[in-house]
């Protein structure tokens, strides 16, 4: 493994893919995945996630732009399985082959000892099914086999396309721990997902894509900063609203004695109450989660989905 060094930085620069018939699956996409971090790659169906990952892996030829891993195009990396592990859709198996044999083929191709196949199949919890034909694997088992294949060469970079698909809640919990473990070992993980809340828990950064274009990228804190809403209950709303406005915060009086304050974190509001001698009966803060942000940023693509009520989650419990 190469660890958190420049050899595992992913740089996507001006990447475009036109599948013909005017379909711009990916359009002038640029982003960077820093070594040693877990980066969530998010976007609605058809946003171009899979196409981008496949271009990064040399499977799809870009119409324009470049995608490099450690400064090299995937095609130019010698023995790529030992540098980059990839798990794409969970269907790239010969049904009559056993899971273990699938991995052993990769061992042979990459010049690795067969013991790697045994090690990774156990690591993903498929040890008991290793000698069964893939035909009899469930979707979740196929996903795990894909992860095993990605790990086979002990790579410093992992590129995973919707690895949570088909996993049961237990599997998802396992996957979450697995990402943490991989990142703790200093690997770079680029993981596309629809499981936004799963991503929020494990990703350091996210790249959000919509209709082939970059919508936003950055750490989750950066992206959700500024979306704080602080609610206070106070018997003296007028003087407090004035003090808050003087501090540059936006204030809305929802009901007599109930204020919603935007533009600052809950700590700031609490501090302003204290220094202005305002009595508070409740103080609670909430911040948009990744899912809210995602829906806000990619709204157009979600018109087919049922309208989701805004559901800010309490970040700081109520203070009486």
């Amino acid at each position: 493994m190469t660890g958190a060094s420049d050899s595992s930085r992913i740089v996507v620069n001006g990447l475009s893919k036109d599948f013909g018939r005017g379909i711009k699956a990916v359009d002038q996409l640029s982003f960077t995945v820093e070594p040693g971090s877990v980066t969530g790659f998010l976007g609605p169906n058809g946003a171009g996630k899979t196409t981008t990952l496949r271009m990064l892996l040399g499977l799809v030829n870009p119409s324009a732009g470049t995608a490099t891993i450690g400064g090299q195009a995937y095609r130019d990396i010698t023995n790529p399985l030992t540098r980059v592990g990839a798990s794409l859709e969970a269907s790239s198996y010969h049904p009559a082959r056993t899971g273990l044999n699938h991995l052993r083929i990769l061992c042979a191709a990459a010049g690795l000892p067969d013991s790697r196949a045994d090690a990774v199949i156990a690591q993903v919890g498929l040890g008991d099914a290793a000698k069964r034909k893939v035909r009899g694997y469930s979707l979740g088992m196929r996903q795990r086999l894909g992860l095993a294949a990605a790990l086979i060469g002990d790579p410093g970079v992992l590129i995973l396309d919707e690895p949570a698909n088909g996993l049961d809640p237990d599997g998802i919990r396992w996957l979450r721990g697995f990402f943490r473990h991989l990142a703790a070992e200093g690997r770079s993980v680029l993981v596309s997902s629809h499981q936004l809340n799963e991503i929020q828990e494990v990703a350091d950064r996210v790249v959000i894509l919509d209709r082939g274009r970059l919508v936003r990228s950055g750490s989750i804190d950066e992206l959700t900063a500024g979306t704080d809403v602080v609610r206070v209950h106070t018997p003296t709303p007028q003087p407090f609203a004035a003090a808050l406005a003087a501090a540059g915060l936006g204030v809305v009086e929802l009901a007599p004695g109930v204020l919603d304050i935007r533009g600052g974190p809950v700590e700031l509001v609490g501090h302003l109450a204290f220094v202005n001698g305002i009595e508070l009966h409740q103080l609670s803060g909430s911040r948009a989660n990744l899912e809210d942000l995602f829906f806000a940023l990619t709204q157009g693509a979600h018109q087919a989905l049922p309208q989701r009520p805004p559901a800010p989650q309490p970040r700081v419990g109520g203070v009486q």
Partner: peptide, 12 residues
């Protein structure tokens, strides 16, 4: 069976 994907990943 789309094993071409792992094959090309191992040998671009």
């Amino acid at each position: 069976y789309q094993t071409i994907t792992p094959t090309v990943l191992a040998t671009p």
